[in-house]
Design a protein around this nucleic acid. Structure first.
Lengths: 252, 252
DNA sequence: CGCGACCTTGAGTAGGCTCAATGCCGGTGG
DNA sequence: CCACCGGCATTGAGCCTACTCAAGGTCGCG
């Protein structure tokens, strides 16, 4: 007979996690799955706009995004904001806080979210007992660094159009991997042009004009918090980049 | 009687590694030290200007910098370059290549260097047998991500002067931790203004003018490949940042 | 002495910024 | 039902930061 307390604590059992069915995530052994299930201590629902982590604080938790979106950012003392990355379902967040003393960045929910909760101390047991999963954690960390490397290249060396094109492609690729596309090439992500501006190191006005040009040229369409890629080829040309293939990854 | 072959293969035994004496590195247990000694399979000397890693290739090796400097960068198809980070003694490099299929960035030596060589496969045994060291590897990866986060903030949201100030402080702080300062506040690193420009996402000319202003205002001095901080306080103000303390870290 | 690597400076331009106003739309309260 | 408001997108105007092109200058080295 299922304990209702337990049901409240763990609505989605790991073995039946809907994310795990996606091709993009590597299969886990039953043993690994059992450990992760044990490692997970509950779920957290967060409202759009709420803070998951705050720069300068330290958190007792680690999360895996089950559903919804968030973004990771840093602020300058005078309020200028730089968005570092976006968090999609399957992303493992908060590692920095568990490994260092304090978070050096904040994370804010873009939409309502559900997250799997892990205890910071549990991470140590993971390392002691599961070499494979430890390697996965390292893998995820390296992967996330790779993504910021790309961002830095973009912000440092690409023009405004190139940056926009690159970001739109990047987001659509990530959404695609997770089957989050509304229709083919239609990406629904609750971000505003202000988010794009703060991601690309541009002003809001200039971002708007740059996107405006892409819209007039029928490369993309933009409505509200959703955009659609009309001419992916052209967008890729503008981005000055070679498409990189999706990589199968672990899911904790 | 020492085997000369062995001596050639391993000039600096890990127990007597000069870096390990520095306060900045956490003490290792004799057991850990033994493993690392075993893990290390040789040394590599590299000439200034030579490539340690090349984007798009995969390497069988991992390195720890013993002496000298390098920088990690990415190129756009048309040749624009973005420097992502600098590698100092004690830095563990090449993890991305070992963990992913291919390197997504290149690394070039700034000076003559000596590096400890580890085998890529050895990393797996490290994870299987040494939870503490595995955690260290993850720690280093998270740390390195933190540093790029800062860079991205800088390049995306700071003005040219702020960026210069921030970078100069960052480099001097790192040099200081490692006792690499020539004299107090005198930093000797073999980088050109072109490197600084490519790090900060600025043009060479504008970098030169911005540094020129700092020099005229007697905030720094610049000669050849060496600069000196004359007014650290002012530089910190310009950088719009709170000084962050050095953190003790592992050394593999 | 000449060459290459790097730093410096001038002049003109442009990409991106700020300030400011307007438009649009959905939600809310009278 | 309508007026109002807040959040977001859009547009215009003028400015300035940072870029490009182009010449020199300096220094160390063969």
């Amino acid at each position: 007979m299922p304990d209702p307390k337990d049901a409240a604590r763990r609505q989605v059992p790991c073995e039946r996690c809907p994310l795990r069915k996606l091709e993009i995530f590597r299969p886990f052994t039953p043993e690994e799955l059992a450990f992760v299930t044990e490692f997970k201590t509950g779920e957290l629902t967060a409202e759009a706009g709420s803070m998951l982590f705050l720069e300068g604080t330290s958190s007792a938790h680690l999360y895996t995004v089950l559903s919804g979106w968030a973004f990771r950012y840093k602020l300058l003392p005078d309020g200028r904001r730089q968005i570092l990355n976006y968090c999609f379902p399957g992303d493992f967040i908060g590692l920095q806080g568990s490994v260092m003393h304090e978070m050096q960045h904040s994370i804010e929910a873009l939409s309502n979210m559900v997250l799997c909760v892990f205890q910071r101390e549990g991470l140590w047991r993971l390392f002691e007992t599961h070499a494979g999963l430890s390697f996965d954690v390292t893998w995820l960390s390296a992967r996330s660094e790779q993504i910021i490397d790309q961002q830095l290249l973009s912000v440092g060396r690409r023009s405004a159009v190139e940056r926009c094109a690159h970001l739109l492609l990047f987001l659509s690729r990530r959404a695609e991997e997770l089957n989050l596309m509304g229709a083919p090439d239609k990406v629904r992500i609750p971000i505003t042009q202000q988010h794009i501006a703060d991601t690309l190191g541009l002003s809001l006005v200039h971002t708007n004009r740059t996107l405006g040009r892409l819209i007039r040229d029928r490369v993309i369409r933009w409505k509200g918090q959703e955009y659609e890629i009309l001419n992916r080829r052209r967008l890729a040309d503008l981005a000055e980049e070679e498409e990189s293939a999706s990589v199968v990854r672990p899911l904790l």
